[in-house]
């Protein structure tokens, strides 16, 4: 069995060229949005705005400007995190979402029936419906390319090596070195999702960030959707039991009232 593979995205060297977005769309033959007529976002140089069923890569622009001469762009090429404990895979009722031999998470489009449970389950908002197929879709970490020994289209296209592809073990070593280097230069760098003991058992697509995760649109403590299952289920059963019991008690009480009135029930 092959080693776990994934992405390490060093956001400090991303230049926002969106070559990864284009490479992803080309390789995966994803349709254009809105019939190819792009609507401008109007409040950002980024017009893709979010990951969805036809955008499996998205370069997020975080435009932090206090004045005309004071500010910075943070850029992050976002993608499915291929969580080690994946919420989408957990809830998928058709078995369409699988874990591959590369420890990545893939939606089989011929099995998915478009129920959309995975969309709400993903803590990162990665998945959405592809209107052409009617099924939920997201990054496959180029499962087809991996199987023949090629690297994913996005990392292959990335001109600054902001997206790095490799085995998780190797990428983690590389990422820690890079964080140490940046820290020595006075940059407040941190890794997001690289810790196997962290949330969701670690992310097989992890990031180097220079601001709080929320700034990049990433939850600080992503959770599995089933975290609520036992409590929510228990409370439902309890509430149903109480109401059922009240109905029985009400019915019995009515009987006793009727009996105490001495009638057959005719009022």
């Amino acid at each position: 069995m092959p080693e776990a593979m994934g992405f390490f995205t060093d956001t400090t060297v991303c230049i926002g060229c969106k070559a990864c977005e284009v490479a992803c769309k080309e390789w995966n033959q994803l349709p254009a949005e809105n019939g190819g007529v792009r609507e401008l976002s109007g409040d950002s140089y980024d017009n893709t705005r979010k990951l969805d069923g036809i955008h499996w890569r998205h370069v997020r622009f975080i435009e932090q400007f206090k004045g005309p001469y004071d500010g910075r762009w943070l850029m992050m090429s976002d993608v499915c995190k291929h969580c080690v404990q994946a919420g989408c895979l957990e809830v998928c009722p058709t078995g369409a979402i699988i874990r591959t031999q590369f420890d990545t998470v893939v939606i089989q489009s011929d099995v998915c029936n478009g129920c959309r449970a995975c969309i709400a389950a993903c803590p990162f908002g990665v998945i959405d419906i592809n209107p052409v197929s009617g099924t939920a879709q997201k990054c496959t970490l180029c499962y087809d390319r991996l199987q023949v020994g090629l690297e994913p289209a996005c990392s292959k296209a990335c001109p600054t090596d902001s997206i790095q592809f490799g085995t998780i073990a190797e990428l983690r070593t590389r990422a820690e070195k890079r964080v140490a280097q940046l820290k020595s230069q006075g940059v407040d760098a941190q890794l997001y999702g690289a810790d196997p003991k962290g949330p969701l058992g670690g992310l097989n697509s992890f990031y180097l960030l220079v601001d709080k995760p929320e700034v990049y649109g990433l939850p600080r403590h992503p959770e599995l959707p089933t975290a609520n299952l036992a409590k929510s289920g228990g409370l439902s059963v309890a509430s149903a039991a109480v109401l059922g019991l009240l109905a029985i008690v009400g019915l019995r009480k009515r009987r006793m009232d009727e009996q105490s009135r001495g009638g057959t029930g005719n009022v």
């Binding site: 809830v91 449970a117 709400a120 389950a121 939850p219 959707p225 409370l235 439902s236 509430s239 149903a240």
Partner: peptide
């Protein structure tokens, strides 16, 4: 009841922020 539980077993705001939806739906 299960529909409320279903909404709680997501990562959506309000739905997943508490465990009470299932009980509410049943009631």
């Amino acid at each position: 009841g299960y529909t409320g539980v279903l909404l709680s077993v997501t990562n959506r705001p309000i739905w997943a922020d508490g465990p009470w939806l299932g009980a509410l739906f049943a009631a």
